[in-house]
Amino acid sequence: MEKLAIFDVDYTITKKETLMQLFKYVIMKDIKNIRFLPRALYSGFMYSINIYDEKRVKESFLKFIEGIEEKDLALLVKNFYKDVLEKNLYEDAIKMMKNLKSKGYKVYLISASPEFYLREFYAIKEVDMIIGTRFTLESGKFIRKMQGENCKGEEKVKRLKEVLEKENIEVDYKNSYMFSDSLSDKPLLDLVGNAYLINFRKKNTFEVLRWK
């Protein structure tokens, strides 16, 4: 049986929220993309008053790359990882990955962030599997339509088990690990025998680790 070391991404292995960082990066590359800022602010407001759910927010927000050619998107996210994401990793997160990997654990990243750029985290040699929110490519172009559900909460457990079943992997959950910055990941935290919250400040029942 495999033992897993599961990590959330935003604010767990990265110091900042990655989707907003992508938006800022696209603006930095071409200031004309600032025209999408009102849409981003509007989407956030509609979510804050419970009119948009997270799926609709993301589909609306990603207008800034809609229609981009697949090859151009691949280049964009490769450079985004090199210029931004790689520089925003918690050193303690990487140390934990290395430590658990050396003990035979499989390292999985499971996040609600879009999978099309999360895949760049395969640059971290310890990472075995990445699961994120999936979006659509149609006729070789990015379409801001989510495939399935937002990969959050119970959906993370569902997606994980789909992958494990497909790969015919049996897991020793009692001796597996899960790291997250948020109680929205309670379904995954409850799944394993070793569950930790990262830099969490509210009262809770899980052990908290302070990562830098």
Rank of each mutant, 00 (worst) to 15 (best):
F80Q: 10
R39S: 14
F45I: 14
I65G: 07
Y11V: 04
N194H: 14
L85V: 11
F179G: 08
V84R: 05
N33P: 06
L197D: 10
E165D: 14
M28E: 15
G193M: 06
I13W: 00
D172Y: 02
K174W: 05
E91C: 05
S60I: 09
A195V: 04
S43Q: 06
K58P: 05
S180P: 04
L188Y: 01
Y52E: 13
M1W: 07
A195Q: 03
T18P: 04
K55R: 14
L191V: 05
K158D: 04
Y173G: 10
F23L: 13
K24F: 13
V157E: 07
K158P: 01
G193L: 04
S184H: 08
N194M: 05
Y177H: 06
Y108I: 09
L209D: 09
F179N: 06
A93C: 02
L75M: 09
I34S: 11
R210I: 10
Y81K: 04
K98N: 11
M129R: 14
L37I: 12
K125I: 02
E154Y: 06
M97F: 00
K3G: 08
L197I: 04
I143Q: 10
D128N: 13
K203V: 14
V107A: 00
K55H: 10
K55L: 09
R134L: 06
Y81Q: 07
V57C: 09
K87V: 09
L75I: 08
A93R: 00
K101V: 06
I131E: 07
K103Q: 15
L76E: 11
E149T: 09
I131R: 00
G67M: 03
K32N: 15
L4H: 02
V107E: 00
S176K: 02
D128T: 07
K78S: 15
F200G: 13
L73I: 11
K212L: 02
F7R: 00
